[in-house]
């Protein structure tokens, strides 16, 4: 209790002018006379708003509103030509760049495809190419070289080989040898 009292005293001492943290709307004090007098006059006026509506007017309102011809004529969104063009400019620019790059990459002429057979013949004829430098084995896939086949671990059993040989129709082979 004593503590509360001390707190209150401290608060009052710190706010000698009674200032507080509350605020009022703009023009509150300027308009207060108008506000109070308006209320006093209001009380002397004859109260109610005395208009009527036909029976079921509000109950049927939605039905009439949604069948209103104007309501169904909700306009489609009109987009101006200018804004439509502006909207597509970035897309068109990007597409143009891609098209330019694409055409340059994919339609660039392959120099080997443009060499005619006659050109090649003349190259060989005029000894531009030294045959000795062309190692034909380089063109063969290394997987199929004899060395690799021999070095591979081929685990074929004799029985498998015999079985395979038995499946071969030797009559055809004999016919071919005879002819």
């Amino acid at each position: 209790m004593n503590k509360d009292r001390k707190n209150i005293e401290a608060y009052v001492n710190n706010n000698p002018m009674g200032e507080n943290q509350f605020s009022v709307p703009d023009d509150y004090f300027n308009a207060i006379e108008d506000n109070v007098l308006s209320k006093i006059i209001e009380e002397q006026l004859p109260g109610k708003f005395t208009y009527n509506v036909p029976d079921n007017y509000f109950e049927n309102f939605e039905e009439r509103l949604f069948s209103n011809a104007e309501f169904s004529k909700t306009p489609t969104k009109v987009i101006s030509l200018k804004s439509r063009i502006l909207k597509y400019i970035p897309t068109a620019a990007a597409a143009s760049i891609l098209l330019f790059i694409g055409l340059n990459i994919f339609t660039a002429k392959d120099p080997f495809n443009t060499i005619s057979t006659d050109d090649l013949d003349s190259w060989f004829d005029e000894n531009y190419i030294d045959y000795s430098t062309v190692n034909t084995i380089d063109f063969v896939d290394t997987d199929f070289t004899e060395r690799n086949i021999l070095e591979d671990d081929i685990s074929l059993e004799d029985e498998d080989i015999l079985e395979y040989l038995n499946t071969i129709d030797t009559s055809n082979l004999l016919t071919e040898i005879e002819s």
Partner: peptide
């Protein structure tokens, strides 16, 4: 409009 103007107008 402003509240102040409305109060005066209503008065």
């Amino acid at each position: 409009t402003s509240e102040g103007a409305l109060k005066a107008s209503y008065f």
